[in-house]
Amino acid sequence: MAQIQTACHVVELKKINATYLRLVLEAPALAAAARPGQFIHIRVSDGNEPFFRRPFSIYRAQAGKVEIFFEPVGRGSKLLASRKRGDVLDVLGPLGHGFTPPGKDVKQVVFIAGGIGVAPFMIFSDAIKEHKAEKILLYGARSKAQTFATGGLKKNGVKVFVATDDGSVGTSGRVSELFDRVKASPDTMIYTCGPRPMMAAVQAFARTHGLKGEVSCEEVMACGLGACLGCSIPTVNGYRTVCHDGPVFDLQAPVFG
């Protein structure tokens, strides 16, 4: 639609490590409107293959530019990876319901991310830079090659703790090995994004300790606008669309089966 469908120039598209690419789009209106936890929906093909747009979490939105990261694993992301600087992409966004900023009384902000799930926490840490709470990131990945540079988060005052499945960087094991960094207090706020088993583990941990939080979910999407109801997930309140009701939900809302 007029306000949210934009033709954006590719300012930069390059590999940042063995796994991920960074895409920077010139998109002033989108960058100004973007909130942490929202996403953009990119038409990766000019034809009908692949057919759906692809949703990407906003990593950063500043100075008129929107930045995302992705791993070229499927048909859509591989096609996107073949684009060049100067190309024009049809982008919908910013879409969805993002993170609720931590209240004034929150004393510890805990980001818990798996793999590329760390992306929305960059823009989120930009937005809450001035907040007085202690901010930590518990970051899990398969191995060093699948981790992001977290310098930007550190610059925003976030303490970073890493766990990798193979122990190639940080603690060896799942991100749950790092849960002892979380203060079991009503003044703690958890925000999580990553693979479903990880989010389920965070949900169970928070439930056990009575901690508040939010979770950013992912699902195959068609419209991205809440029209088709194709990306609905079961929640304690019935089915909710990831694209429009989410992607961010109360941590205890999704039913991870």
Binding site: N48, F51, V220, G230, C231, S232
Partner: peptide, 23 residues
């Protein structure tokens, strides 16, 4: 109506299959 169990959609050549269930 609460609609059908996910997954409700999938991509196909030049199209999609849906079974939303008139949620």
């Amino acid at each position: 109506q609460q609609g059908n169990l996910p997954p409700r959609i999938c991509e196909t050549p030049a199209g999609m299959i849906n079974a939303i269930g008139i949620e």
